[in-house]
Design a protein around this nucleic acid. Structure first.
Length: 517
RNA sequence: CGGGGCGUAGUUCAGCUUGGUAGAACGCCUGCUUUGGGAGCAGGAGGUCGUGGGUUCAAAUCCCGCCGCCCCGACCA
């Protein structure tokens, strides 16, 4: 193991995926300095390394929102309790995980600063778990005519869901996200919007995060509270479990009715607009980590890497140092001129220490420059990862990641190398998912796979059960319907009707079942 | 909410059973030697031991209360 050095590795090593997948994930988050626990239960601190990735992800998403006609706005953090209560299903769905503000003042009592009991709010304020109700309350003022539609708004915000159990990035009490809230004159238009934004999410997942996803609809039991239909993208993590990576909901007229929003149509009729809402969160950071990283640390796709390449100078004596640093500076400048983010690591540390650190932090490319390179006019390029080959030793793989290339050629090759690594990561993730995907027709096969040692994966199975049957599957196998895939999402041989593996009833199409985060 | 664990230096932890001057490793700072896969030596800085009370000549240690965090499970748009 690369990280097992010099015997006492307690403070240096991280758990391997094979040993303890869950611990491995936590180790990466911590050691790559992406995030850490705060003093507040369930709330994390996103550190600069992690936030830089989130910012790039935000940019990719935001550009696409703008390109599809949306604009950004901002609504309050606090939602009056009565607003949340307006849509019954919605309120019930979030009731168990709300933070509530009940007072507005502190007071020194018995020498201690405490909540002033006399400052009780007339109406409690809920810290938004999602913003449909407060936004639609505002839309009431903005929508009167069909000419006001469609209304296409997105908000970047933090939300709070008082989860019983939290995990860094994957489920935290407070998290960052974006939530799009749109209003449309017709159902068809709103449904089209729901699909369009799901497509945007799938595009970002695959082509920015290099993370393949299945696009589909949620079953009734997994639907967003208040939605008519919930669409989602589901990704597979390296342990075979599913992670819901984004959702796009068709809300029908539920919120318009709850907030009494109506508009006059072209025909002069008073109508309720149709709504959508869609969101992705900092959970995507967890997805990114668990999709690509290895036992040496984070692997970050070039499109999201805050640093594309790190330059590590190598020298012995002062005169060597001066020459090497001069060359390193030039190399950095030339790469930056190509639009790459390059870091010169000239700290007074041994090169090996820097290698381990930047590998842990997931920088795609390392460039070593030493006296030998100056002499030969070459650069040493070391990729963060190489596609695994069967039967290959670690030493062999390490060698394959490293290449000595003539200076000009090396510099010219970097942009293409980034594209290549981006593509390889997607391919690698696709292959991994394919290895853990099965089209199954019997409960016996299903049971064997999910009760086996490796937790199964994505099972494409025929399904005609209802909520009760879903719960039965959850109890027996800890699996759930991740989604009912959209047309075009089905792998070869999985299309068409069949019979439900549990009930034996006829089924129109297969669904994806898996264990989930 | 159930089960388990933990709160002592920046971090990870030892010390607690059997009360008696606050410890280690890593990290950090300084100097010298080093630098192509986690450097070595020497010196140094750094802690009201989570919190409130009790027992005692004396409490990190024993007793009682409280608070907080982590992990596993239940739950989870």
């Amino acid at each position: 193991m690369a990280q097992q050095q010099g015997g006492g590795n307690e403070t240096k090593g991280i758990a391997t995926r094979a040993e303890d997948y869950s611990q491995w994930y936590l180790d990466i988050v911590k050691r790559a300095e992406l995030a850490e626990h705060s003093a507040v239960r369930g709330c994390m601190v996103i550190r600069p390394q992690g936030y830089a990735i989130w910012e790039k992800l935000q940019r990719e998403l935001d550009d696409r929102f703008k390109a599809t006609g949306h604009v950004n706005a901002y609504f309050p953090l606090f939602i009056p309790l009565s607003f949340l209560a307006k849509e019954e299903q919605h309120a019930a769905g979030f009731a168990k995980e709300c933070a509530v503000v009940t007072h507005h003042r502190l007071k020194s009592l018995d020498g201690k600063v405490q909540v002033d009991p006399e400052s009780k709010l007339e109406e409690p304020l809920v810290v938004r778990p999602t913003s449909e109700t407060i936004i639609w309350n505002q839309y009431k003022n903005w929508i009167q005519s069909y000419r006001d539609l469609p209304l296409l708004i997105n908000q970047w915000a933090n939300v709070c869901r008082w989860e019983m159990r939290t995990r860094l990035f994957l489920r935290t009490a407070e998290f960052l996200w974006q939530e799009g809230h749109t209003a449309h004159a017709t159902e068809a238009e709103a449904r089209e919007e729901t699909l369009r934004m799901l497509g945007v999410y799938a595009d970002v997942a695959e082509h920015v995060m290099a993370m393949p996803v299945v696009q589909g609809a949620k079953s009734e039991g997994e639907r967003f509270p208040g939605a008519v239909e919930s669409l989602c993208i589901e990704a597979m993590m390296q342990d075979g479990k599913a992670l819901q990576a984004g959702t796009s909901h068709f809300l029908g007229q539920n919120f318009a009715k709850a907030s009494e929003v109506q508009f006059l149509s072209k025909e002069g009729k008073l109508e309720y607009p149709y709504a959508t809402s869609w969101g992705v969160s900092t959970r995507l950071m967890g997805a990114l980590i668990m999709t690509h990283s290895d036992d040496a640390g984070l692997i970050c796709p070039p499109k999201l890497a805050p640093i594309h390449a790190v330059v590590v100078p190598i020298y012995r004596k002062d005169d060597e140092k001066a020459k090497v640093l001069e060359e390193a500076g030039k190399v950095c400048a030339e790469l930056r001129a190509k639009g790459l983010a390059v870091k010169l690591d000239d700290r007074d540390l041994h090169p090996g220490a820097k290698y381990y650190e930047w590998e842990m932090k997931g920088v795609p490319l390392r460039i070593e420059i030493g006296p030998k390179d100056l002499e030969k006019g070459s650069l040493c390029l070391v990729r963060r990862f190489a596609i695994e080959q069967e039967g290959e030793s670690e030493a062999e793989q390490r060698k394959r990641k490293k290449s000595f290339v003539a200076r000009a050629e090396a510099l010219a090759s970097v942009p293409a190398l980034m594209d290549e690594m981006q593509a390889q990561l997607l391919e690698r993730a696709r292959n991994l998912r394919a290895r853990r995907t099965r089209v199954l027709d019997s409960l016996a096969e299903f049971e064997a796979w999910f009760k086996g040692e490796d937790d199964g994966g994505f099972a494409w199975v025929h399904w005609a059960g209802g909520r009760a049957e879903e719960e039965q599957m959850a109890e027996r196998f800890k699996t759930s319907i991740r989604c009912i895939p959209l047309e075009g999402q089905y792998p070869a041989g999985a299309e068409g009707p069949g019979t439900c593996l549990l009930t034996g009833k006829p089924s129109a199409r297969r669904v994806v079942m898996a264990k989930a985060y």
